[in-house]
Nucleic acid binder design. Structure first.
Lengths: 219, 219
DNA sequence: GCGTCAGGTTACTCATCGGTAGATAAACCG
DNA sequence: CGGTTTATCTACCGATGAGTAACCTGACGC
């Protein structure tokens, strides 16, 4: 080709380390969310990041380290978003409601982050499982505290039919699955999604089929 | 060593194809559940199966095919177990109750099957995702039918606060998460697990904290 | 007895991909 | 301006593991 002559060597402009690290992490999250941990190649990540491979190793370490960095960053973002949405002075149901809305807001805004956290990090055992367990543990803790406080205020103790942790696990799982389902049914709004869950969790089937409805109060 | 003399060459005894296939599938499920799809090596599977590698390729095809065979077999088993437990003449809550018990019964008995189906097959995209979607789709359909029939019998239409499919997704997700959590908290019995979920789903938080309890009727 | 076919194995090929050594060039400082 | 630091690249190595070719062997029919 004629215009190959004197083609610039395409060497990337020199940028401060912090900027490159962000670029690399962004690219990594995207590629990991697309192909999963194992199928994602360092070469592809470097290409997407617009940087050569050794830079990644120099800045963020080996593949495992890189993935860990991704998980930590995204988990931090998610947790922050949810906690920012919760208003501790409101009654339990409204707290849950706001938490759920923040959660689905995050998922909507950062699909790739959510995919990495939920679909990818679970499978690969080892160091990652621990990190994800920590995140989910914090979510469960949050919900559990809510449930237990609501329950014990009424004098309800743990028994065979009721376990704060068990219910929290179930609730978090339901929220996660619905988020996952949402990825393929994006025509539903985040508010509607949260509303379904609140109605299921708060009222239960037997009330729902009687036509009862839970709706957020103006707070 | 002295007793190495005249050591038999350890050639496997000749067995009919069907038997070997089962051995291989069993080994594959175990290894996949242990390390995940990518980290599982065909060599390890062949070793666990007590058979050499080419046999696997000859009987069950390449790695992908092998994994697909595993998923299909285990999914079939799970679905069969759950459907066998459901008694269509009972009221909706009791149907759900029996379905849940069967489900947790299966998970307890075939931990490895469950791990492969839930943790491994999800991550790896491609042909497997479809297979798993089908399974989960059937579960959701089952639950959805239950919910919708219960709802429409009362004249409850789909609306912003209520979606049969949405609730089914949430319920199935809650059940899955609880199953997963159970793997690390095996001191709880399957009945208790199912009971937690029934109480959450059927009564909802607001009734639970008032001290209400759902219990199976004698059927 | 003796072909022949299904069951079974050893030992290899070859692509992919994580990771690195060593060269190069831009900025910064005296 | 040199000299040094830091950002960046090209080009390679080595391990791992999927998949296969070619060979062995016991059982059964005729």
């Amino acid at each position: 080709m004629a215009d190959d002559v004197k083609r610039a060597p395409e060497r990337a402009k020199r940028l401060p380390r912090a900027v490159r690290e962000k670029q690399i992490l962004d690219a990594a999250v995207r590629v990991f969310s697309l192909h999963g941990y194992h199928s994602a190649s360092m070469d592809e990540i470097s290409e997407v990041a617009g940087v050569s491979k050794p830079m990644i190793y120099s800045y963020l370490g080996a593949k495992e380290d890189l993935f860990l960095h991704c998980i930590r960053r995204e988990a931090g973002g998610l947790l922050e978003a949810v906690q920012a949405g919760i208003k501790p002075d409101l009654p339990p149901d409204m707290q849950l409601w706001h938490g759920l809305r923040s959660f689905y807001g995050f998922v909507a805004e950062y699909r790739e982050s959510w995919t990495v956290l939920h679909r990818q990090a679970l499978t690969v055992g080892g160091p990652f499982a621990g990190e994800i367990d920590t995140l989910r543990g914090k979510a469960i803790e949050l919900v559990s505290a809510l449930v237990v406080s609501a329950g014990s205020r009424k004098g309800l103790a743990e028994q065979a039919e009721f376990s704060g942790e068990g219910l929290a696990v179930a609730l978090v799982g339901a929220a996660e699955s619905l988020a996952d389902w949402w990825l393929d049914h994006s025509d539903v709004s985040d508010g509607v999604l949260a509303s379904w869950l609140m109605n299921l969790i708060w009222l239960g089937f037997n009330d729902l089929v009687e036509g009862e409805v839970w709706r957020p109060t103006e707070q």
